[in-house]
Design a protein around this nucleic acid. Structure first.
Lengths: 176, 176
DNA sequence: CTGTTGCCGTAATACTATAACATTTTGGAA
DNA sequence: TTCCAAAATGTTATAGTATTACGGCAACAG
């Protein structure tokens, strides 16, 4: 398994494998950076990945509670803060929600495509044309960039098809 | 007065004139579109412009209250919803705050530069290179774009200078 | 083993936004 | 003008998101 990124993966893909891979990547990332990947942080990252679409902090919190974990808002927000610092998770500002990052070690001039129909979000990494355009616009004003939020809402390929021909949808779920 | 957009206007500019102009633009915009620019909506837009940096909904609410207006959260959120629908105001997702739009009639593939030091936000309109880059990235995945959020944090020219040489700051405030 | 640091538990609170329903205002048709 | 329907606003309550503050405990370095 080579773990290329499938931006809008088909419903039938092996998602357990996605999650396992993300946790492996995170483990080695934290080792290399001397960051403590505790059980709680690991579990929160796992939960973020399990949904494979953006998850709210309180949804994570509810899950932790049902697992018998004594949890309150700071529990999950602190874990998320850590994961975001490490580049393992991104926050989607439009949604007040969080997604796992498939490439925590990349340069992270990333942007997101958010499907308003199915709710999934795809992270697009390192688009030089986009980077240049933003940088030039900032330079023209003498503005120095530190962080960026680029979130695009619309319809993912699957949902476009589904809307055009609803019958096709079930079929892809089986064969995808 | 020709009302070009000064993205990060100097502290000493005639801000009352900015606000008056914005209200004039809004008035004619609403007339052309058959939208009712009521006293409340007008006042909220004025308050948004008056700060000339992003304002929170509850800050607007507090101001309305001090003016003796019977106001609750829906009062201000409804006014903001209207203003946003008309393109007269934008919401900054990173800040949960609102800014006046200097060009409600433009095509609005806009993005924002937000200064983390002084808090001001500049709206950049219609950058074809940026549009193309985003469109191509979306096309490559078969994603159809409807709305976009582009917010860049960093330092505005004034704050860069201020940090480099604090003494220069006061001077520009007088002569700007 | 001991002090320091960082992680986590816990309680309280702040901040942001919406739902649901009542009332008033507005603009147009009769 | 009068009356109706629609739009705007008032009002109360609640939902959803995030942080502060403080205390205990575990991990690690000296």
């Amino acid at each position: 398994m080579h773990h290329d990124i499938d931006h809008f993966p088909p419903p039938a893909h092996d998602h357990d494998d996605c999650v396992r891979n993300a946790l492996d990547v995170a483990t080695s990332h934290c080792e290399r950076h001397g960051a403590r990947f505790t059980a709680l942080r690991r579990r929160v990252l796992e939960l973020v990945w399990t949904s494979h679409e953006p998850v709210g902090a309180y949804a994570l919190l509810d899950t932790l509670k049902t697992e018998g974990h004594a949890a309150a808002p700071p529990t999950v927000y602190r874990a998320l803060d850590f994961l975001i610092d490490q580049g393992l998770v991104h926050r989607l500002e439009r949604l007040n929600a969080f997604v796992g990052c498939p490439r925590p070690d990349s340069s992270h001039s990333a942007h997101f495509l958010i499907c308003t129909d199915c709710g999934r979000a795809a992270e697009m990494l390192d688009d030089p044309a986009l980077d240049n355009a933003l940088q030039k616009a900032a330079d023209a004003l003498g503005f120095s960039v530190s962080r960026r939020t680029i979130e695009v809402e619309g319809l993912c390929p699957d949902c476009r098809r589904k809307i055009a021909d609803p019958k096709f949808d079930a079929e892809r779920a089986l064969n995808g």
